[in-house]
Amino acid sequence: MIQKKICMLGAFAVGKTSLVSRYVSSLFSEKYLTTVGVKVDKKQLTVDGHDVTLMLWDLYGQDDYQNVKSSQLQGMSGYLLVVDGTRSATLEIARQLQQKASQTVSGVPFILLLNKVDLASEWEIDEPAFFKLVEQGWRVIRTSAKTGEGVDEAFFQLTRAMLAPRPPHEAL
């Protein structure tokens, strides 16, 4: 049995919690997020014949990356960076969070989730910005907490990346 710790990082109100709430087993209420600052959920999936249990650390939304506790990131095998497509400021925060994460735990795969794809008409993050990220070698998936679009895909891709012997983002 393989277990992996992954973290959900993102600015305040980008929809991290609602993004995963439909896809994971929960034991703890969302109250933990505001009190302890973290809520641990579980997601089981099979990737390339491996049964994998993801322990999903949903970290309380922080607009200031400095408030993210490195202790919470330690031991993670990968992470999801969540950005609200309707607020371009959240992308900047995501960049900072990514830097913080890579300083704390180097060489682990991550995926940027461009959330709220259901509100695409209101998006502030335009195509050029999006392609810039991809060019940087970031893996980006458009998601919607409302429709569920891209969520399973995100978990699957991240898990596959984590199981791969040489993570493609190691160079970053």
């Binding site: 710790k5 087993s25 703890f28 302890v36 973290v38 809520k39 641990v40």
Partner: peptide, 15 residues
């Protein structure tokens, strides 16, 4: 669920 308790326990220690 022991998995989640384990994680939460660690989170609380960190906290």
């Amino acid at each position: 669920d022991a998995d989640m308790i384990s994680g939460m326990l660690s989170a609380i220690r960190d906290f």
